[in-house]
Structure formats: C-alpha cells, structure tokens
Write a protein that binds this DNA or RNA. Structure first.
Lengths: 249, 249
DNA sequence: AAATCACATTTATCTGATTTAAACGGCTTG
DNA sequence: CAAGCCGTTTAAATCAGATAAATGTGATTT
C-alpha cells in the first residue's frame, strides 16, 4: 500500500469525486474504514491539506462531512480523531460502500442478511395491508423483469433488486424505504456469493408468492414468503461458515 | 412563535450549538425538516451567510454537513436545493431530532413502531443465539432498573430504554445496534403517548420474559416475547387512529 | 499541595480574490 | 424551422492568509 504512494495515482476512486472536496471525502473515508489510521494519530487539518495537495477549506469541508457521517470528531487543541465504529452511520451510502470496498467478508454478508430477514418480511406484511395499486404495479414490474431475466432478456441482479426495493417502497413507511441501499448492496454481494456456492439463480416462483400475497392483501402469507426467500440465503451463508461468533456462553 | 422573535432568545437549541457551524447546522436542518423552504427557493451561500450573520466558510461547512445527511444538494449555477425526503438519512440522530421537533405526529409514532416490530424481535432472537455473558448481564441490568423504577427508585423511561438498547447490542450485529437512537427516540415519544391513552406503565413481567428467553438461549421464545411487547404499543396507536393510509386499493 | 497564570497548539472563523461548472439566450447554420 | 455552437452569467468551488477562540500543559505563585 505504501509502495505506490509515490506514483501520484490512486488505484481506485477519482471518478467518484465530482470535485476536490468529494474526492477527498472519498479518499479519507475509505482510509478510515479500511483502518489506515487505526493505531496512528489522525493528521491535523494543515497536514491533511498538504498531504492531499488541496487548500484548507476543501479539507475542512471534507472533514465536516465525515463528522456528519459519524466517522470523525474534531476539537480545538485535541485535534481530529477517528470515532469508534459504533458511532459510524452504517446506513449511509458512502459508509456502506467503503465498508464493502475494504474486502469481501462473509461476516459482513451475514450481518447484511440478518438485517434483511428482519426488515423485508415485515415490509412485505405491511405492503399487503397498505400498498396502493401503483405500489403493487411496481412490485409486479420487478417480477416481470425477473421472468425476462430468466429467459436472458434482462439483467438477473438488477431485476431482483428492483423487486425487493419495490416491496420496501410498497410498505409506505419511509423508514423501510430507507433500506434500499442496504438491500441492493447486500443483493449485489449475495448473488456473487450464492452463485459461487450453489449454481442457482434467484427463484422466480418464490418471488411470485410474495407478489401474490401482497396483491391479495394477505400479510401473514407475505411475511412468510419473503422470510423464506431470505432465510434461504442465510442458511447458505451459515453453511459456508457454520458458527459466526457464539463466544462465551 | 413569531411574537418572541424580537427577544433575541431562542426557545430551544442554542445549547446544542457548540459553535457557530453546529448552531447553523441545527437551525437550517430544523428549518428544512419543518418545511420552511418547501415552496421557496433555497438561499444562495452568500444570502444564507448574511441571514445568519456568519461568514461564508461557516455557511459552507454547515451546508456540507447537511449534504452529507442527505438534506441538501449543491451545484454551481443551479445553487443549493433541498432534496426530497426519500433521500434524507432518517437514521441520523440530528435528522431524527428535527423530525420530532416539528410536531407530534401519530403517523410518525406509528412508523417508528412499525420499524421496531421488525427489528427488535429479530434482535432478541439473534441475541438468544449469540449473546455473550456480558451482553446478558447488560440486559439483566436494564430489567433490574425497571424493577427499581416500579418501586419509584429509578426512572421508568430511562430504564426501559436501557433494556431495549441492551437487547439490540446483544444481537452482536452492528446494524441492529445502530437502531439505538431510533428506539430510544420512539420510546421517549411512545411512553408519553401510551400514558396519555391508557394509564399504565411498561410491564416488567413481559420484559422479564424476553430476558429469560435470551438467557435461556431460546430464539423463538425471545422473538415472540419481544414482538408481544411492541405489538401492544402498535395496537394502542392503531386504536387512536384506526386507519393510517390505506389508499386506493 | 493547590490554585493560578502564561504559553503552545489546533480547530474555528473571517475576508476577499480567483477559478470552474453549467444553465441561458442568442446566433449561426443546415 | 430545427439543431448545434458560443459567449454570458450566475453560483458554487477553491485558494490564500490573517485573526479568534478553545483547551491541554507546564511553570509559577501562594
């Protein structure tokens, strides 16, 4: 990692920085999440600016954004410090991305899906009660895309995501809708994994059961159908790594 | 509200602004969430600075933080614009606070608890599988505080929060732990509401059932016990306002 | 030993200038 | 008339340098 510091070229990322501030946000954010500052003391504002070759205003704005996302905290005289991971805002799109970029981790994948197994079945149940015709139409559209994908006429992953996001939205609860990033991220990662382990794609029929339950206004059925979908992935993960962290009982 | 504008005293808030930037963050954030800029065009950087009597750097840093939280978006020539609520980061502590400060809304309270009913039972189930002895001890400590509170020797609300947060933490999944703010916020709001509707406090025995299931390593029981706890609140809310938004079916 | 004071360090704030991005309108051209 | 080109203009983005405020640290005083 240090051996390429003299190149003046970042291996990834510059395309994401629409401007200097966002570029710096991305660089520092990633560095923090990866753990580059773990033992070390975080540089001062002036040092950061010099290291990245930008002005102090750009630096301050990037640091302020990272503060807003819970990664940093700044105080006069004490300096800027990296916050413990417990205060990071894990539902922030950027934080999520940095988290995934650091490495593939079955642990993280499991945690993602442990969250999904709580959220999505309940979202489906809610949707079965309160979804509007438009909501249902969007869910249906996602399902149709999955069918097309099965015939090779659409992208399997993207249509899968479209379906799950549509269900979240159909719950008509903004907090559920908020999970679209987590779910799509989890799916993007899961699918590669499940394809690697087993040679199967997402089951369209199982997804149709969810759609039917929602359209039919049957919360219990919707919850169970969705839960089955995700439990399936979770079992796969637990098979690969039987015991996550059952410490000290 | 306008009749006290000449006093030079804010009814709430100045203590939250450790400095000018955070004060401005709070002021603008609240204004956005309350809806002050709904029809109107958002002021330019220079205008904002003048209106709040601070320099442009402070303004820019506050705006950048709000951008990081998903409330704003800025582009040259177009200016800074308020983002649709769908892109707000609802799990951010500040956003959550602003959301509640705007008014008491049964809708919001229901949405909170619809989320809780998904998260907390599953967290309890997870906890029953993977919690460490320390985790269980924390859950137990919360319960004991609730018992003391019943005798008037502790704060009922705070001990209730301590219990629920301990369970989230015991799930050993950082995503679940992240909900501590939502849950404590929801509880703070719920309790006032449930006390107003029914004259009862949180049931210690019902909470003990959750603790027992977690300590006993029984996921199914833990899930059900926790679910019962929250369903109770949800029913209360739905009684007060039978049909939230079952539009166009 | 405790309280106080001077100092050093780092973020916080202000000011004003310069640069860059992108929407707008008018113009030219096919 | 439609499509593409080009200055104009506006607002954010960036830079530079100075000053203020907060807060540990250590010396000094009582």
């Amino acid at each position: 990692m240090a051996n390429m510091s003299g190149l003046g070229i970042e291996d990834t990322g510059p395309q994401l920085g629409r401007n200097l501030t966002y570029g710096m946000l991305d660089a520092i954010g990633r560095a923090i999440v990866v753990g580059d500052y773990d033992g070390a003391t975080f540089p001062t504002e002036a040092e950061l600016a010099k290291q990245h070759g930008v002005s102090r205003s750009v630096t301050r704005e990037a640091v302020k954004m990272l503060t807003a996302k819970g990664l940093l905290s700044a105080r006069p005289r004490q300096g800027t410090t990296v916050q413990p991971t417990t205060s990071w805002n894990l539902f922030d799109t950027d934080v999520l991305r940095w988290l995934l970029e650091r490495q593939f981790s079955i642990d993280l994948l499991r945690q993602f899906n442990e969250l999904r197994v709580a959220i999505e079945p309940e979202a489906a149940a809610l949707a079965a009660r309160v979804a509007t015709v438009d909501d249902i139409e969007r869910v249906n559209a996602g399902l149709k895309r999955m069918e097309r994908a099965e015939r090779g006429d659409d992208d399997a992953l993207e249509s899968d995501i479209a379906f799950h996001v549509a269900v979240l939205r159909a719950s008509r609860n903004p907090f559920y809708a908020q999970f679209r990033d987590v779910v799509s991220t989890a799916l993007r990662t899961s699918i590669r994994f499940t394809n690697r382990v087993k040679g199967r794609t997402a089951n369209v029929a199982d997804h149709a059961a969810v759609r039917d339950a929602i359209a039919g206004g049957n919360p219990e059925k919707a919850r169970k159908a969705m839960r089955a979908l995700i439990s399936d992935v979770l079992e796969l993960i637990d098979t690969a790594k039987p015991d996550g962290a059952a410490a000290g009982r």
